[in-house]
């Protein structure tokens, strides 16, 4: 086996056996998109279903999201709030994970 292949093999195995880090911005972006879309679809679904009282439980989110309601317009507002929340949670998880993983790696 040539030296270069041996080196590459070693490098690849090192990658495979190292500890993964999370790209904070990417995780925040993905979290934001998933949560934003999720709340948007959930709101829209209830609006389309209709009925005498539309989404009384989901509507309680207005406690946290001022201006949010289970309406066509509220779904857009919900999208932004959901995205904001998802991004914040994603960023927080990734940030904490990276810090803890680094710390644990240094200690080991």
């Amino acid at each position: 086996m040539s030296q270069s292949t041996r080196d590459t093999e070693q490098a690849l195995l090192l990658v495979a056996r190292s500890v993964a880090r999370l790209r904070t911005a990417i995780v925040a972006l993905v979290g934001g998109m998933v949560c934003g879309t999720g709340l948007f679809v959930a709101t829209l679904w209830l609006v389309i279903k209709g009925g005498p009282t539309v989404g009384p439980t989901l509507g309680l989110l207005r406690v946290y999201y001022p201006g949010y309601s289970v309406t066509w317009g509220g779904s857009i507002v919900g999208f932004f709030y959901g995205a904001l929340t998802g991004a914040a949670v994603g960023w927080c998880v990734a940030f904490l994970y990276n810090r803890l993983a680094d710390r644990r790696l240094r200690r080991s």
């Binding site: 690849l12 990658v15 495979a16 056996r17 190292s18 500890v19 993964a20 880090r21 949670v89 927080c92 998880v93 990734a94 940030f95 904490l96 994970y97 990276n98 803890l100 993983a101 644990r104 790696l105």
Partner: peptide, 17 residues
Amino acid sequence: AFAQYDEIAAGAAVGVT
């Protein structure tokens, strides 16, 4: 080639959040 996730760090991060 995939790196492994630190399981404790992942648990702690999600737990704290």
